[in-house]
Design a protein around this nucleic acid. Structure first.
Length: 269
DNA sequence: CATCAGGCGAGAC
DNA sequence: GTCTCGCCTGAT
């Protein structure tokens, strides 16, 4: 068990921001997560967060995963104060962090997310994990399924993926998993590229368009200049930024601000 | 019963 | 390059 203090960290907000579909509230102020092949529970009360793992695991895995070494308060204070909407959105969602997630898991998760709702996305991913992921047990005896590897998913037939509830996305995942297994794309090489180059590679995959590629750039590759434009953000942009969002002003922080705008619109409307 | 959900691919032009 | 259309399926 290790406890930290942070004003700009909220498990509830990270959970609800929907970057990760395998994180959920599993009790009073308690959150459960499967990521990077590990199972983690955390309890948050105010600015105090207790992670149920050793200090060594926290330092080597979760500190990075939750992006705890980035100063989000500094990013928020860099917001143009005359932009009342963005200021309000950032204040509202200041506990959000841009997670540093597993690349393959994010590719699959956001591929499934298109034209889909959160509840169903979670169900799809759960079924994929149960059917194709490795079953493991945490140190404290909690059973969980790791996220399936590209090799494991490439063994599935399109109809097997239909059975997991993917619908028309089944063919997309089938094609994408096979592209990775057959080395038509090298995922490790994506880390060496900048945002534009990485996005260009990602959209070559079947079922990955500009929006999903941006989500992957932001939520896995941590390209914080990526600014995914989904249905919620498009509504915000047309209502609040008829002349366009000031990307030139925010540069590398645009993607983080996108999360505040997205979350604010999602929760408040 | 219609519409929508954190879009995308294919085809037309 | 830009535009339109159809798409699995559960929730509302």
């Amino acid at each position: 068990m290790i406890t930290i203090q942070s004003e700009n960290f909220s498990m509830a907000q990270i959970c609800a921001s929907g970057q990760n579909f395998r994180m959920e509230e599993c009790g009073d102020n308690r959150y459960c997560l499967v990521a990077l092949g590990r199972y983690l529970e955390a309890v948050q009360e105010g600015s105090s967060i207790s992670f149920d793992c050793s200090p060594e695991e926290f330092d080597s895995v979760w500190k990075t995963y939750f992006d705890l070494e980035t100063d989000y308060a500094a990013i928020i204070s860099g917001i143009d104060q005359t932009d009342k909407y963005l200021t309000a959105a950032a204040e509202y969602g200041k506990g959000i962090r841009i997670l540093r997630q597993d690349l393959w898991e994010v590719i699959v998760s956001f591929l499934i997310s298109q034209q889909n709702n959160i509840k169903r996305i979670r169900r799809c991913i759960r079924l994929l994990c149960e059917n194709y992921g490795e079953k493991r047990t945490s140190q404290k005896g909690v059973a969980y399924f790791d996220f399936p590897t590209p090799y494991s998913l490439a063994k599935a037939q399109v109809e097997d993926l239909y059975a997991c509830g993917l619908g028309y996305r089944s063919r997309y995942l089938y094609e994408t998993a096979n592209s990775v297994v057959h080395d038509e794309i090298n995922l490790d090489k994506l880390w060496e590229l900048d945002y534009d180059a990485a996005k260009k590679e990602l959209v070559k995959l079947c079922g990955i368009g500009t929006k999903v590629a941006d989500c992957i750039c932001l939520c896995a590759l941590h390209k914080t200049d990526a600014f995914p434009k989904d249905t919620h953000i498009n509504k915000v942009l047309s209502a609040q930024y008829p002349d366009g969002f000031p990307f030139e002003k925010y540069g590398q922080n645009s993607g983080i601000l996108q999360q505040y705008l997205f979350y604010y619109h999602l929760m408040v409307r």
